[in-house]
Each structure stands twice: as C-alpha cells, then as structure tokens.
Nucleic acid binder design. Structure first.
Lengths: 184, 184
DNA sequence: ACCTGAACACCGTTCAAGT
DNA sequence: ACCTGAACACCGTTCAAGT
C-alpha cells in the first residue's frame, strides 16, 4: 500500500500509544512504515505539524452533552479523560497544539462556545461574554485537564498499575473549580 | 576557574534566556563553558535533572504576601509572572519540574500551605483541608499560571514586541478564577 | 578528584537523482 | 507524483585514559 498522510498519522498514533513520545521520531516512524525518512516529508510539513495533527485527532471525538453549559463542560472533560487516559504523553502533545494553534482543536472551539453561554446565563442579560474570554477559558480548562491527566498517568506509571478510564475525584474537583471560577 | 555545579546552572540559565530551550543542549553548554561534553556529567546527573534544578532556581524568589491567603496567592502569581516574563520557554521548564518533582519547587510548597489556610478559613471550622488537596490546588495554580504566561509570550513573539513585566488582565482573571474555584 | 577524547547510538531535515 | 540514498548538522550519554 502506498504511503499517505492518513497512514502516517495512524502509525504515529500507534507508536505514541505503545512506546511514548520519546520513541516517536521521524526515523522510527519511517522504519515502521518501511520507507526512507525523507519520504515522510512529502506528506507532512515537519514533525511539529504532524504532532499538532495528532492532537486534533486525539480530542476529535469528545462531545459535550448535558442539561446546562456547566454540566456539558464537565461531561466533556470526563469524556476527554476517558479518551486520553490510555494514551501515553497525551498531555505534552495536546499542549504543543495549544501553543501552536488552539483553535484547530474542536474541544477548544466547543468549550469556548459553552463558556460564552455560561456567562450569558449567569449575567442573565443578553449582551454576552466576549468570544476572546470564551476561548481563554476554554484553553485554561484544557490546560488544567491535561495537567491533571498527566499527574494521574505519572502516578500510575510509578505505582506500576494501569490507569483507570474513570476520572478520579481530584480531576473532577479541578474541572469543577475551573468552571465555577469562571462563571462566578 | 574550575567547573562547578553552580557555574553550569548559571550558564544554562543565561543560555535559556538568550537562545531558548531548543538551543540549550548539553553540548552547547559545554562549548560555552569551554569543556568537553562529558565533563558536565561529573557535576550533574543528566539533562533532566539539570532542567529541574533550573526550574527551582527560576521560581525560588517568588514570595507570597498579602492580608489574606487568597490575596497572598494572587500576589505570588503576579510576582511569578514578573520574574518569568523575560525567560523564554519558562513554561516548559517549569512543567518538566512539575511532572518530575513538584514538591521540589518552593512555589508549590508555599501555595499549598496557603490553599490549606484558605479552605480552613472558608469552612471556619478548624479541622483543616487535607495537605494532599492543598498540593493539588497548588500544582493546578502553577500549571494555569505558566500556561497563560506561555500564551502571552507566544503572542508577544508573533507580534514582535517585548512582553510586559506587568501581568495582563487575562492572566489575573485566570489566577483569580483558579483561586476562587478552589475556595468556593 | 576532575577532565579529555573518542566513541555509541541516535536525531530532524534537505535534496539530487531515480522511477 | 512519489520515493530513495546520502548527506548535513546536530543530539545525550558513557567511559577508558590521562593529570
């Protein structure tokens, strides 16, 4: 089968899950795909862009559902934890994308929208929270989520146990604090 | 002058400030110090430990002062911004230390103590917030601070301007939200 | 005790040349 | 259009040998 951007991305994802970020090199990826290193650069611009695309894919399926903006945000964060818990070094990859192009992440766009609704609701005038503030809150929330996820993953690694898919109470507390702090 | 751990650390700090993390390699550092690369390993265990020590030094002088725990925390975060604003890639270096050994950072220990006081105050019984919760809140706060600092630094870099030492309102809002969310 | 020289096992990226 | 081969300019870390 010929090389393709899609094939590169999915193999990179497998490598990340199995061996971690340190072993996800362009050369290792090329070896895995049985091509020369240079071949990759015909399909992706560079390693940074590849990792940003990987981040998008990692959070692409997270959905926000709930009776209120606050509940939907909380739900989305729990979904996020479930989907990233088994992905080694998910935090670093997400942060890279957050630094380079936050709006490229569906999670950020959705969460920003919900934060704006949340502020509208609390202030219950209609003038509305500014979109900039919404995006700020959304990136903060994602930063908090991945930081706590990372802490749990590190803990699990050191303890030699597999991490639960269900987010621990400390994670939930941090998420609720972040949401509450923003809508107060 | 003979090589020493101290000299290595301060030169590494200079390199970080001037050229950024990507150019802070063990080999570059050795060249700057006019020694062979291997010489460094007589004084530091490895690059990771060197960066963790650098992180400690970067936040060592931040002090928390104010009439209440909440105000002191806010003050400390503003101090943090001032002290890190001119340090390129401060965020990445701090996060590394947070992942490896959070309690090695004075900032985390102090903030944890203040969060415990804060919770005691609000609940105004004396039984006390657990130390684990305090440290959790402290690491979250530091994660939020460096994430927002990073965002400002990136923005300034793209705009081609030098970042202000005074924290912007978005930073202050994020800090207040984090503190408020935890004491609610 | 402290440092050098040299090696080992890697990196990301580019680019002429081939098919 | 797509890929190889080979190079360029680097990495972190180790370790025998020297002073």
């Amino acid at each position: 089968m010929a090389l393709s951007r899609e094939k590169i991305l999915s193999t990179a994802f497998d490598l990340l899950k199995q061996y971690g970020l340190a072993d996800l090199s362009m050369r290792r990826l090329a070896t895995e795909l049985e091509v020369a290193p240079g071949a990759l650069y015909y399909h992706v611009k560079n390693k940074q862009q590849l990792l940003a695309s990987l981040a998008s894919r990692m959070v692409a399926e997270v959905e926000f559902r709930g009776p209120s903006p606050a509940k939907a945000l909380e739900f989305g964060c729990l979904e996020l934890f479930r989907q990233l818990s088994q992905v080694r070094e998910a935090a670093e990859v997400i942060r890279l994308a957050l630094a380079v192009a936050p709006e490229s992440l569906r999670f950020v766009r959705e969460a920003a929208r919900l934060f704006e609704q949340l502020v509208d609701e609390v202030q219950d005038g209609a003038s509305g929270g500014s979109p900039a503030a919404g995006q700020l809150a959304a990136t903060m929330l994602l930063h908090v989520c991945v930081s706590f996820l990372e802490e749990e993953q590190t803990r699990a690694l050191l303890a030699g146990v597999t991490i639960a898919e269900q987010a621990p109470s400390s994670y939930i507390a941090a998420v609720q604090a972040s949401i509450a702090g923003w809508s107060g």
